[in-house]
Design a protein around this nucleic acid. Sequence first.
DNA 1: GCGGCTGATTGACCCAGGTCATGGTCGCCC
DNA 2: GGGCGACCATGACCTGGGTCAATCAGCCGC
Lengths: 254, 254
Amino acid sequence: MTDQPQKRERRLIPLSHPSPEPHVCTPDVRLEMLGRAPLFADLTQDELAEVDRRCHVHGFVAGEAVYHSGTTASRVYVVASGAVKTVRLASDGRETLLDLCGPGEPLGAVPALGEEFHADSAWTLTPTCLLGLNSNEYAQIMEEFPAVAMATLKGVSRRLSESRQAVHLLAGAPLAQRLAAMLLLLAEKVGRPWEGGVLIDVPLSRDDLAAMAGAATESVSRVLSIWKRAGTIDSGRRWIAITDSDALRALRDG
Amino acid sequence: MTDQPQKRERRLIPLSHPSPEPHVCTPDVRLEMLGRAPLFADLTQDELAEVDRRCHVHGFVAGEAVYHSGTTASRVYVVASGAVKTVRLASDGRETLLDLCGPGEPLGAVPALGEEFHADSAWTLTPTCLLGLNSNEYAQIMEEFPAVAMATLKGVSRRLSESRQAVHLLAGAPLAQRLAAMLLLLAEKVGRPWEGGVLIDVPLSRDDLAAMAGAATESVSRVLSIWKRAGTIDSGRRWIAITDSDALRALRDG
DNA sequence: GCGGCTGATTGACCCAGGTCATGGTCGCCC
DNA sequence: GGGCGACCATGACCTGGGTCAATCAGCCGC
């Protein structure tokens, strides 16, 4: 028992994005990111450049609103860097975190996708750079490049099946199971290898996790405390890492 | 108070589909239904006929499985007549009813939409006739008729936003609110005017409603009893009708 | 390296709704 | 039109997790 200080050593906040300035990509990074996005993965360099020409760049600091619910949906974004959460608000103030978009992922909505108004609000979690295409530009691109339309379809379908799994979990699975499923999904989405485990490389508070799992902050905190003591996860303020994926998977699968 | 027998008078089961035989559409009804389906709404008569030629007809009795979860997803269906529910099963036996498809609505999945295997099972609620297109046929049709691809995209998007609203409700809204929201959605989807109200024209048991609302059967029964006494709804075995939509809407909106 | 603020934790209490058990009744089928 | 089986209603009880309140500690800025 010689080691009580070892704990201190690694408690520097492990997340990326330490700089608080709004981030705006350079033109080359921009093109690079567009190519990486599943939406445009099938395009040639020339086609990409054509899409890039129609993009508008938007820089955000952390905690800024990208759009608010109720406003008219007029733009589709691709996250170039950073992370964005989308949140739906109930009349009684209850908030639900519905989606989290990292680099390469699409965000926003457009009448072409069947939504006239935003049903939820989007907030940046970190300094973020978004590439935006407005409604008619996007519709035109889909028409011009059917591969983009197909990729869009695939993306929306994947999100639908994720959402349905969430419905299934929320419809009766106990909190621990829901939380475990959520953390594993997050790890796939925005995980980064870290000290032999997976760090969820986005600043999420207990409140955020609770809003995602459909639970009270305190309940989430209780469950995570237990898991931390058991060595299944590690966590600090606004960060969390999975240290024993197998144990979590077992919890998720009942 | 001369009327105790009045009750008896209208207790003939009000739902459609009294015949228990498997239903198979005649060729003309088939074409008619294809044209009504949102998926193919933008096609000309000739194009519709072309799609129709590639369709396979499937007849089902009530309570039959269309496909099982875990099997490979190889077909997209359009409901020509009848109704189908899709259900996801948890490892502990818990069932969640995720979707309900009436005439004109698409059902099933296909690798082109990003699903390799069915995540849930589909069961007919009534005698049902389905028009099926298998994987490659559907992909080819989308390629040949971009309007179909766009309609598919719109349809999937609408389902995604419905599903997200369900997530939001299940993440903390009290049961009564969830149930009210659900009934109103069902009314829009498969409602039929009836005695000054709206009859949900599909046989749904209390178990089905519970599986949809993420609740126990008994809890659903309790809430519905209260609403029935208050005159907000009317119901019998496997049927339910909304008699006071405004009251239900008020309950839904808190 | 240290103070302070914000976010995390822990405890006590309570209630919506799940569970178990029982009885009621609608409607189908003979 | 009568019997029967599936479906529905109601009551009693119990527990997961929500709520309220108080304390603690990670991490930022100096």
